[in-house]
Amino acid sequence: MKLMILAFAGLTLAVGPACAQQASAPAGNVENGKTLYVQTGCYQCHGYAGQGAPMTGPRVSRTEFPFEGFLFQLRHPVSQMPPYQATILSDQDAADLYAYLRQMPAPRDPKSIPLLKAGR
């Protein structure tokens, strides 16, 4: 198990530009991915916009993980994330989810939001 964790950690560190990783991902159905994102409870920890939350789960919107890393994390989470085995989320479902996350809209520039200029 430790070896697998290390392997995954290495994989995440080796992440390259997003577009390069997308090329190796299987075709995914964005609409089905959107449905699965809610049905399988991804939003509970990562938020409806995939924005993440410090105590529950990181940002997944426009993920830059390669698909293989994404799938590995689903099946054998390196952290506190619950494992999603193929019996409840098939490889195709995972590809659909991945496609949905990848195409999420780019965030706005924080400087364009006056409210975010206030605060500390």
Binding site: G47, Y48, Q51, G52, P107, P110
Partner: peptide, 10 residues
């Protein structure tokens, strides 16, 4: 701030 904008309008 960069994280706050991710779900700003949702």
């Amino acid at each position: 701030r960069a994280e706050a904008v991710l779900a700003w309008d949702t």
